[in-house]
């Protein structure tokens, strides 16, 4: 009769799935890293979906991650490094195809 309590102005009981801003913040970085267990991940996600207070911090951490990940260089090793590795391996008996 949760709907009736709300209708009558009573406080809605806290659902077991709901977490506080503090709890969401404590798990925020693990959440963004995809390192939380499924239930915990869903709890944080449900909180962040609706919490205006947590929204700016979430956006801040996301913007930071985007800029760091964007700086990744798919930079290949210079050819002389690759040649040196193959040469040294060749001396060890490795034959490349």
């Amino acid at each position: 009769m949760d709907w009736l309590r709300r209708l009558l102005g009573g406080r809605r009981a806290r659902s077991p799935q709901e977490i506080t801003c503090m709890e969401a913040a404590e798990r925020l970085l693990e959440f963004l890293d995809g390192e939380l267990e499924e239930v915990s991940h869903e709890e944080v996600e449900a909180h962040l979906d609706v919490c205006q207070k947590c929204f700016p911090r979430l956006q801040f951490e996301k913007a930071f991650r985007e800029v760091v990940r964007g700086a990744r260089r798919g930079r290949p090793a210079p050819s002389h490094v690759r040649d040196r590795v193959l040469e040294v391996l060749g001396e060890e008996g490795h034959s490349s195809s």
Partner: peptide, 28 residues
């Protein structure tokens, strides 16, 4: 994770960290 002092310090000036997007890769 609970509190990020860098966010606390900048949130009045740029609440969502939009400035990060202006920073070039080399500087990162």
């Amino acid at each position: 994770s609970r509190e990020n002092p860098v966010f606390m310090e900048t949130r009045e000036r740029d609440p969502e960290g939009s400035f990060f997007r202006s920073i070039v890769d080399d500087r990162v």
